[in-house]
């Protein structure tokens, strides 16, 4: 199946369906202004959408391929220059949920992001693409340019590493 070039509402539906997860994926990578970068990703996808094969899965793979490239660019850029963005509370992994946050049920992901930072880059990327982006193994392999077997191994090692994280071992009943 090939996505129609006349995108109008269809592309808007795709945006509404996938944009929140793309924002979460970029936020987990610590990208500055993930909402703005998400919009850049969709703007970059738009000219190519007529040539995508594979229906919604194909669109999803392309979107995360571009988002993945943006995160790589971001990490290279931040490695070269000092980080000079304003303080953003949501990105601060040292914080715990306030009573207010707990009361209104706001998502507090600082704990899990802190744990993910202990993983290797590829292991963390596999988990984010599998869990946040909701991609199957084959599409994760396409986005990362690796074989399915390699992705499977990375995923397995990531889960085993997380299992041994102090946050989890402390919670475990003795």
């Amino acid at each position: 199946m090939t996505a129609s070039p006349s995108i109008g509402p269809t592309f808007e539906e795709i945006y509404r369906k996938l944009a929140p997860a793309v924002v979460g994926y970029l936020r987990a990578h610590g990208v500055d202004d993930p909402e703005a970068v998400t919009q850049e990703v969709f703007i970059a996808v738009l000219p190519k959408i007529g040539s995508i094969s594979g229906g919604e899965d194909g669109v999803r793979t392309l979107i995360y391929s571009i988002a993945h490239a943006r995160t790589v660019d971001h990490h290279r850029r931040t490695a070269r220059m000092p980080h000079t963005v304003e303080y953003e509370r949501d990105l601060d992994m040292r914080l715990t949920a306030s009573a207010e946050d707990l009361a209104v049920g706001r998502a507090d992901t600082s704990n899990v992001l802190s744990m993910l930072s202990t993983l290797g880059d590829d292991q963390r990327e596999v988990l984010l693409l599998r869990v946040v982006a909701d991609l199957p193994l084959e599409q994760v392999a396409t986005v990362m340019g690796k074989s399915v077997g390699a992705v499977k191994q990375l995923q397995r090692r990531a889960l085993l590493t997380l299992k041994e994280h102090p946050h989890i071992t402390d919670r475990r009943p003795r």
């Binding site: 929140p20 924002v23 979460g24 909402e35 998400t38 704990n111 946040v132």
Partner: peptide, 13 residues
């Protein structure tokens, strides 16, 4: 918990 990262609001275009 990680999955909840994907449950945010749709960013205003």
């Amino acid at each position: 918990e990680l999955r909840r990262l994907a449950d945010g609001p749709v960013p205003t275009p």
